[in-house]
Amino acid sequence: MTAPVRLAVHVGRDVPDGLTAVLSALPPDVQPVAASAREALPEGTVAHLYCSDALPRRPATPYAVWRVPGADVGDLGDVPALADAGARHVRPGDLQVSLRAWPDSARPVLPFTRAGLRRVRDLPARLVGEARSDGVSWGAPGEHPAEAPLDTWPTLAALASAVIATGEELWTALAWAAPAVTDAAGARLLGLTPDVDVLVGADPVTRARLAAELADDDLRAARLARSGWQTARSHRPAGVAAELCRRLGVRPAPRSTVSGLTAALDALGTPPHSLVRRRARAATAGLPGAVTSGWRPDREEHS
């Protein structure tokens, strides 16, 4: 067994919420350990994560910095910086951590498949959905929209050619990879880049026009949908943890135990009941351990 590699974590006065989540989501063979300047580093420490209020003049390298409110460390150059998504002190290029729950059962449906589903479900070929505080409205662009209760939003998020939303509804839309239009505050709050992850319109008329254009432009809608979905996903603690390891050059051991079929299927985003999972299980039925990610039931400890 290879020894785990350690990420030394230097915290200051407070521990940001997102930090706990990101550390919990580190790959299993990367262990976070508390560290301070006054004592020897634990064996196997390969990188450091400093909260900005505990950042010394000469940090040990390689390191990353978690921006804590009130302890501005400015531009860090190549050093990876992390921050809570949508916080005021976030700078462009920061890894943003969002603790919003990923909607249950959401799966990315890119515009091509959306069009197919609309056809199969007998919905308009071009369909724009909008979330408001009291409900949703939907319809072909330019026609009088129909109204529905807010809890039908996931259906629009999954099937519309383009959606208009902010806040939690925008998050849901991104989880379904909907081509989305929002306002400037909505984009900032979720850490999205205008024109890359979402389109931004200042007023309802502009947003409606942008959504109608998007519904007509397959290429742009596909790029926006893919990018928005990936960006939102990358803000989840697991995504941030993986990117942090990559930027710090921390590689889990190549013969990681997490190499089972299930891990591979999970990493690709396979839904729990899809056919390919059953096929994988059936194919490996005679090979215990293949499905359980290499975990062996006869082993006592498995942390």
């Binding site: 915290v11 521990v15 919990s24």
Partner: peptide, 21 residues
């Protein structure tokens, strides 16, 4: 289950860090 144990570890480590501070 592993995540439960893991996040307990992480919390412990962070508490250690706060204590040291």
């Amino acid at each position: 289950r592993d995540a439960t144990v893991h996040s307990a570890h992480v919390n412990l480590e962070l508490l250690k860090g706060e204590l040291r501070h």
